[in-house]
């Protein structure tokens, strides 16, 4: 079985970003970029499936600037076999990404596609679902456990208030949640080998899909600054403040 894992290059989870002075976007100059943490989990899961013998090959695809090759290398260091880099500048919306992925999938013919549940830059939580819709494939989102059973896959989903277990027929789409696994530390030799794995490059335009944005960003603003906290001396004082100052009880 072949598994396809789309991986996005996003601002590092530990980096601090600033909104540009004119509110037109986020200032990313000099800021560390990394593989989207949920995508790292997806690659780890695919690698574990391969190690268990449930999968034969892992292909990763990243859509973004030329530097996105770095996140493909991160995926290789975990265990992916080869990569496709679809080069396109600027922010692509989830629908455009889903359309490109559909085109890639039609050529690669994977039986399973594992995505992150969301990218931590815009937190859209849409690409996997849109892709499933475009392909007409079954989907299991927010996965916290994945087991392959012949031509089916059983997935435990994190839903409000508990877990839901579903079974899908392959080919299928899975988006993974934080608790699916803890990605391994890539060891130095794996990182070295990752440099030698092949990356095929294409341009977004070569797919002939409509990439026009559907959304217009009006303004970006930083969240209002939280006021410094205070120490209260007693429960009575706390209750008093909650009731009379904060007005929350």
């Amino acid at each position: 079985m072949k598994i396809l894992v789309p991986v996005k290059r996003v601002v590092d989870a530990n980096a601090h970003v600033r909104v540009k002075a004119d509110g037109s976007g986020v200032d990313l100059s000099g800021v560390k970029m990394s593989i989207n943490p949920f995508d790292e989990i997806a690659v780890e899961e695919a690698t574990r499936l391969k190690e268990k013998g449930s999968a034969a090959e892992i292909v990763c695809v990243s859509i973004g600037p030329a530097e996105a090759a770095e996140v493909l290398r991160s995926a290789f260091a975990i265990g992916a076999d080869r990569g496709q880099l679809v080069i396109g500048e600027g922010d692509l919306e989830p629908l455009a990404v889903a359309k490109i992925l559909k085109a890639v999938i039609e050529k690669e013919n994977p039986q399973l596609v594992i995505l992150g549940k969301q990218a931590i830059d815009y937190d859209n939580d849409q690409t996997g679902q849109m892709l499933a819709g475009l392909l007409g494939w079954p989907q299991a989102t927010f996965a916290s456990n994945v087991t392959i059973e012949g031509d089916q896959v059983q997935v435990t989903r994190e839903v409000d208030g508990g877990h839901q277990t579903v079974r899908l027929r392959l080919p299928a789409i899975i988006t993974c949640d934080l608790r699916l696994n803890t990605p391994r530390f890539a060891a130095l030799p794996s990182i070295m080998k990752a440099k030698k794995k092949p990356i095929e490059q294409k341009s977004v335009d070569s797919y002939g899909v409509d990439l026009k944005p559907r959304l217009q960003v009006l303004k970006l603003a930083e969240p209002p600054r939280r006021k410094a906290g205070i120490k209260v001396k007693s429960v009575t004082e706390l209750l008093d403040k909650l009731r009379n100052e904060a007005g929350v009880i």
Binding site: T182, P183, R184, F185, A186, A187, L188, P189
Partner: peptide
Amino acid sequence: KPGFTRGI
């Protein structure tokens, strides 16, 4: 811990 990786 799980995922432990020895240095090189």
